[in-house]
Design a protein around this nucleic acid. Structure first.
Length: 429
RNA sequence: GGAGAGAUGCUGGAGUGGCUGAACAGGUACGCCUGGAAAGCGUAUGACGGGGAAACUCGUCCGAGGGUUCGAAUCCCUCUCUCUCCGCCA
């Protein structure tokens, strides 16, 4: 959520920022007029409240002295009625103002390049060379099904399309990656591991920005206020919702494994085969709470922490910075890490690292005090995938495939796989 | 699912209609005391919103929302959450 005061005082800047995101400008007109109306009501309301407060204690005193108070009471009854009306009007105005504000996206960081679509995202670095093959590399789903470690027929029967059944060494590979990543981030990068609920309430979803605007992307549990988490960002960021943290405790680093559930509305016909786009996938997430002045540097560190996973797994990748037109709703700046996927012959997003600045903190009321007697300020929140497990499996299967259809295990992962070096075909049941 | 108890500031905990933004205690900060520290003594210590360049000032907030009243932390209604017992269950 953007600060209404900031909008009021920097209307031109905000409008320009929205324009760069490709958003209609008149979105702000209503916000401005609601804000004006709100403040006018407050002035009138407070006058009434002040009158009531002073007169009511006057009445108390007069009554004690045994004086007649009927006339004053009568007057105050009217004032009370007026206050009630104004309060109702204020609440309505504030509600619709907030409703509007919740739909406004974050302002891009000044370093974010201008652009219209993902095509315009500049590549900021490349690591490794695309893996070379002396033959046409197979896709991960072909490799996986041939090895018997991925069974999309069974998962379609059990649930439906966009779900996966991992078997044998496939299931183990998934679990190995989760453990490998959590160990790396906790032991070498200083994150604290947490295991949050996989369902969250609507207040949490609103706090991080999934609600109210992106309801159709979420799975909701019928008859409850609970949603399946689309990313660990939601439960983990909301750990400190409505809290005032101590300045000396910042920055706070958390890492969490969760499954992620996404409705993928509007993705019909996209990536229909394989593990790339699932309704349920696993992910290890990195979340940070920082002081405002540190968040730029912390984003770079976060990006490095996520990159380290691919370096250790020896998977070629590149990093792009999202342009204004491609930037996510809540984000001020986002880097995507894209892993090399041999079968499709391109780089594919495997991690997204974002600085939300105070956008989520303001929605979720996450604040800190520099010292015990200073005013509370909003923290900055950041998060990034470290990494998406399913897509990492895709990258491993495709980059580490062998000519005979087996798949080698990255060295860094072998100790998590009982020391095996190669995935061999699983005997079918 | 059934029965009961509760929700007040950083914490514990008072408070059943006005003088309570909240006693008292603890915590924390600052000051005095001390060679230094502890103890002791003193002072301070919430959030949000409006106005103001600022000093400051006004208003709201005692789980949330509604109601009664000139006036509500206090009375009434609804909801949420927490705890205890019973049932069920991994």
């Amino acid at each position: 959520m953007i600060n209404i005061k900031f909008i009021r005082e920097n209307l031109d800047k905000v409008q320009a920022a929205f324009r760069s995101r490709g958003i209609a400008e008149n979105l702000l007109d209503e916000v401005i007029s609601l804000d004006e109306r709100r403040r006018a009501i407050i002035v009138e309301l407070e006058e009434g409240q002040h009158l009531r407060k002073t007169t009511s204690s006057e009445i108390g005193r007069l009554k004690k002295e045994g004086k007649d108070i009927t006339e004053l009471s009568q007057q105050m009854r009217q004032v009370g009625g007026k206050i009630k009306e104004l309060e109702k009007e204020l609440k309505e105005t504030e509600d619709s103002l907030n409703q509007k504000l919740l739909f406004l996206p974050n302002l891009p960081h000044q370093s974010v390049p201008y652009g219209k679509t993902g095509e315009d995202n500049p590549v900021v670095k490349t690591w490794g060379e695309p893996t070379k093959f002396s033959y046409e590399p197979k896709s991960h789903f072909e490799l996986g099904e041939n090895l018997g470690i991925l069974d999309f027929e069974a998962s379609a029967k059990i649930t439906g399309t966009r779900f996966a059944l991992y078997k044998g060494p496939g299931a183990k590979l998934e679990r190995a990656l989760i453990n490998f990543m959590l160990d790396l981030h906790t032991k070498e990068h200083g994150y604290q591991e947490v295991l949050p609920p996989f369902m969250v309430n609507s207040a949490s979803m609103t706090g991080t920005g999934q609600l109210p605007k992106f309801k159709e992307d979420l799975f909701k549990c019928e008859g409850t206020d609970y949603y399946l988490v689309p990313t660990a960002e939601v439960p983990v960021t909301n750990i400190h919702r409505e809290e005032i943290l101590r300045g000396e405790d910042l920055p706070i680093y958390y890492t969490a494994y969760t499954p992620c559930f996404r409705a993928e509305a509007g993705a019909y016909g996209k990536d229909t085969k394989g593990l790339i786009r699932q309704h349920q996938f696993n992910k290890v997430e990195l979340v940070k709470f920082t002081k405002p002045e540190d968040s730029d540097a912390e984003l770079e560190k976060l990006l490095n922490d996520a990159e380290e996973v691919l370096k250790k797994l020896e998977i070629p990748y590149r990093v792009v910075v999202l342009c204004t037109g491609d930037l996510g709703f809540a984000s001020a700046k986002t880097y995507d890490i894209e892993a090399w996927m041999p079968a499709s012959g391109g780089y594919r997003e495997i991690s997204s690292c974002s600085n939300f600045e105070d956008f989520q903190a303001r929605r979720a009321m996450i604040r800190f005090k520099r010292t015990s007697d200073s005013k509370p300020e909003f923290v900055h929140t950041l998060n990034g995938s470290g990494l998406a497990i399913g897509r990492t499996v895709v990258a491993i299967l495709e980059n580490y495939q062998l000519p005979d259809g087996k798949v080698a295990i990255p060295k860094a992962l072998q100790s998590y796989m009982d020391g095996i070096e190669t995935i061999c075909p699983l005997k079918p049941i």
